[in-house]
Computed example of a mutant assay.
Amino acid sequence: MRIDIITVLPGLLEGPFSHSILKRAEDKGLASVKVHDLRGYGIGKQKSVDDYAFGGGAGMVMMIEPIAKCIEVLKKERDYDEVIYMTPDGLTFDQSMANSLSLRENLIILCGHYKGVDERVRQHLITKEVSIGDFVLSGGELAAAVVTDAIIRLLPGVLNDETSALTDSFQDGLLAPPVYTRPASYKGWEVPEVLLSGHAANIESWRFDESVRRTKERRPDLMEGDISLGNGDSTTERNDN
C-alpha cells in the first residue's frame, strides 16, 4: 500500500510515521507513506497556497491550483483508489471504513487548513470526505495520521500477531473485553480464575460475555444496530459530471 499525504505543514507528520507500527510497516516494505509539501506547488514567487474568500468573511481559503497541480503530478505516476479530504463535515471514520480502505492499494489524503479548501476541489478532485469526529482541529494533519495508522495496522504482516487486529474493539461490533497479565495477584486484586484455567472454550465464552457487558455499559449505541452498516462502504462521490 502507498499513501500520499498533501499538506502545508509536513513537519507535523514527521513524528507519527517514523516510529512504532507505521515505521515497522515501511521497513518491511508493506506500506509506504509519502508526505508532499503543498507549497512546492504554490503560486508566484511567494509560493502562495491560500487566498481571501470571495464574498468576504474571516479566514483564508486553500486555492484550487496548487492542490490540482499536486494531485495531477501524483496521478501521472500511478492510479489511485481514493482521493480523500480530511474535513469535519465528512463521513465519520470508523473501524468499518478502516477495514475497507485497508483493501485499497494507493490513496491520496489531502489535509485541510485555514477555512478549508476551494469548494471546486471537493466537487471535482475528491472522491471521499472523511472526519474523525465532531470537532475542529487546526489542520487535517493529525486526522490524516490517525486514519493512516488505523489503515496500515490492518495490513497482513504489519502486526507481529496476525490475529491481533481481528480482536480489536469494533471489529465485531463490540468493545474488546478486559485483558490481564502477570502477576495473577497484586495487592489482593485477582485475575479472573477462568483466564488461568487453560480451558479455551470457557475463556472465549467469558471474553464474549465481557465484550457484550462492556459494550452495553459504555457504548449502548453500538448494540442498537449492526456497526458494519456504518461508513465502510459509503463514499461522498465527487466527479466532473
Rank of each mutant, 00 (worst) to 15 (best):
E193N: 02
E105W: 01
I3C: 05
D209V: 01
T215V: 10
M97P: 00
R153W: 07
I67F: 11
L137R: 04
E82V: 03
N106L: 10
D4F: 09
L9K: 08
R182L: 10
F93M: 15
M63L: 13
F17D: 06
W206S: 11
I227F: 13
D149I: 04
L196P: 07
S131G: 08
L155W: 09
L12I: 15
M60W: 01
L155K: 13
G42F: 08
V147C: 12
V35E: 01
V158N: 09
K216W: 02
P220K: 12
D226F: 12
P66T: 07
M1C: 04
I227V: 12
G40H: 08
G188R: 13
G59E: 02
E26F: 02
Y114K: 11
T236H: 11
V147N: 04
G59N: 05
L101Q: 07
M63D: 01
P183Q: 10
E14Y: 06
I6L: 15
S169Q: 05
A144M: 07
H124N: 12
R213W: 02
G133Y: 13
D94S: 08
T215Q: 09
T127Y: 13
F208A: 00
D161G: 04
A200R: 14
V8W: 00
K47D: 04
K45M: 08
I108D: 01
A25Q: 02
K23N: 10
A184Q: 10
G157D: 01
V130E: 06
G57M: 00
D221A: 05
R2V: 00
D209F: 00
I3S: 04
S164R: 06
R219M: 03
D161Y: 09
T181Q: 04
L22A: 07
P66I: 04
L222N: 03
N239Q: 07
D233M: 11
V212D: 05
L222S: 00
G188S: 12
I203F: 08
I67C: 06
F17V: 09
L110Y: 07
D50V: 02
K69F: 01
V146A: 14
A98S: 15
S18L: 07
Y180S: 05
V194T: 12
S169T: 12
L155D: 04
F17Y: 15
A150V: 00
F93P: 01
K23D: 05
